[in-house]
Amino acid sequence: MRKRKLRYKILITLGILLICLYSLLPIFWVLSTSFKQPDVIFSDPPQWIPKNPTFDNYKTVIQNPAMIQYFKNTVIISLSSTVLSVVIAVLAAYGFSRYKFRGRSVFLGMFLFSRILPRVSLILPFFIILRNIRLLNTHLGMIIVYIIIGLPITIWLAKGFFDKIPIEIEESAILDGCGPLTILLRIIVPISAPAIGAIAMYAFILAWNELLLALILTLDISTQTISIGLSYYKLEFGISWGNLMAGSVLMSIPAVIVFIFFQKNLVDGLTAGSVKE
C-alpha cells in the first residue's frame, strides 16, 4: 500500500514537472528578457538568468501614458464581451438543447460560420456594418464583434454540456411549476458551472489578445487595445524586445487573475449531490 502511494506521488510530481516545463519554457524566456538591459538581450551564449536585472523595461511600459488608456479599453471590451458572451451563449445553448423548432440545426450550423470564414472575408463586411450602425471605433462595436467571433465555441460547448444533463431533474421542476428561465438559472447554470467557467475564459482571452480585427476596426487611442499598444514595440527594423516582453508580462497578469477567478467554477464543479436534488 505504501509503495503504491509512493509510486502515485512520483507520478504526480513527474506530471506536474512536465506540464510546467512545457508550458513555461518560452514564458521563462519572455520573463528573463523583460528584465534585461538592451545590450545583453542578444548575448551569445544566451543569459538565461539576467546578470544585472533591471526594471527599466517595465518602467518604460508603465510610464507610457498611452498604455493606461489601452489597458482601460481592453478591460472594458474584454469584460463586457465576456459577460455578454456567456449570457447570450447560455440562453442560446439552452434553446438549442431543450427545444425542437423549425430550422434548429440550420441555425446551429450558421453559428459556426464566423469561425469558418477566414479573416479576409470578414474584415471588410465587418467594417462596413459597424460604419453603417455607427459603431466603428467604439467599445460597443468591438464588443459585439468579439461576441460573434466567440459564439461558435461558446454556444456549441454550452449546448454540448447541457445535452448531457439528464432531463429528469428539469421534468420534476416543471411539474413543480417552474418556468424555463427559472429552470435554466436555478438548475442548469449551477450544474454547468465548469462549462460556463471554461467558455468565459475563452471569451475573455479572445478579446484580450486579439489584434487584427482591433487594428482595422479601431481608429485611435480612445478604443485601441493593449495588443495594438504592444505591436508598437515591433519597429520598422527589428523588435524592441525588452519592452515587448515586459508589456507582455504585464498584459498576462490580469488574464491570469481572471483565470484564477473562473477556475473556482472548474474546481467546484458537478458533484453527485447537486444532480440528485
Binding site: I216, S231, E236
Partner: peptide, 17 residues
C-alpha cells in the same frame, strides 16, 4: 502598427472612412 496596415488602408478606403 505596420502589421495589417495594407488591410487597414484598403478596408478603410472602400468603407469610405
Amino acid at each position: 502598427p505596420f502589421e495589417g496596415l495594407v488591410e487597414k488602408y484598403v478596408v478603410s478606403i472602400v468603407g469610405n472612412q
